[in-house]
């Protein structure tokens, strides 16, 4: 169940939309922000709010890179694996983070604090190699700098 305030806000967002489904991405994002990922319950709630079937929402949810239909940690470390970062040490950065966190890319640390995901170009190619945590972008990452930032984020994570 979502809190009444969030529900009212989302109802308003849908009411203001040109068509109900125009608000679909915003609605999924807000529910995901609340639950941490787009749970089955969230999917049903989104469908209800948007006047769509759960399957119609599923069709959208599975399309987008930043909508998660499986559990993720409260902190997601996205490491760019596209060309400019690759040419400037991106593979080394990702490898060092997998070693630091003792997980494979695409999985979550044993303590549930951090999910590590390779991702497509972050649009920060001049600062390669790059990563993003939450909505914050980090550029010119050395393995050491990356480790420091990830450690700080891990300490601050509500999951740890």
């Amino acid at each position: 169940m979502i809190p009444e305030l969030l529900k009212t806000n989302l109802e308003k967002r849908v009411a203001d939309a040109v068509t109900n489904r125009e608000a679909a991405v915003d609605t999924m994002k807000e529910l995901q922000r609340h639950y941490g990922w787009l749970t089955d319950e969230a999917l049903e709630e989104a469908a209800q709010l948007l006047g769509l079937s759960p399957l119609q929402v599923e069709e959208l949810a599975t399309f987008y890179e930043m909508i998660y239909r499986r559990p993720v940690a409260p902190r997601i470390v996205h490491v760019c694996d596209s060309i400019s970062c690759w040419a400037s040490g991106g593979e080394t950065l990702l490898k060092s983070l997998t070693q630091l966190l003792e997980i494979e890319p695409g999985s979550t640390t044993a303590d549930g604090a951090i999910t590590l995901l390779p991702c497509s170009c972050l649009g920060n190619c001049g600062e390669a190699p790059c990563m993003m945590i939450g909505e914050k972008q980090y550029g010119r990452m050395t393995p050491e700098a990356g480790a420091e930032i990830v450690a700080a984020v891990r300490d601050a994570s509500p999951g740890s």
Partner: peptide, 25 residues
């Protein structure tokens, strides 16, 4: 302002229109 949730294909103009309408892009 519409903020998307990722996928390169959303930049193709007709996919973008679908995305903006809240359809699969």
């Amino acid at each position: 302002v519409h903020q998307s949730a990722g996928r390169y294909i959303c930049g193709e103009e007709t996919a973008l229109i679908n995305a903006l309408e809240g359809k699969r892009a």
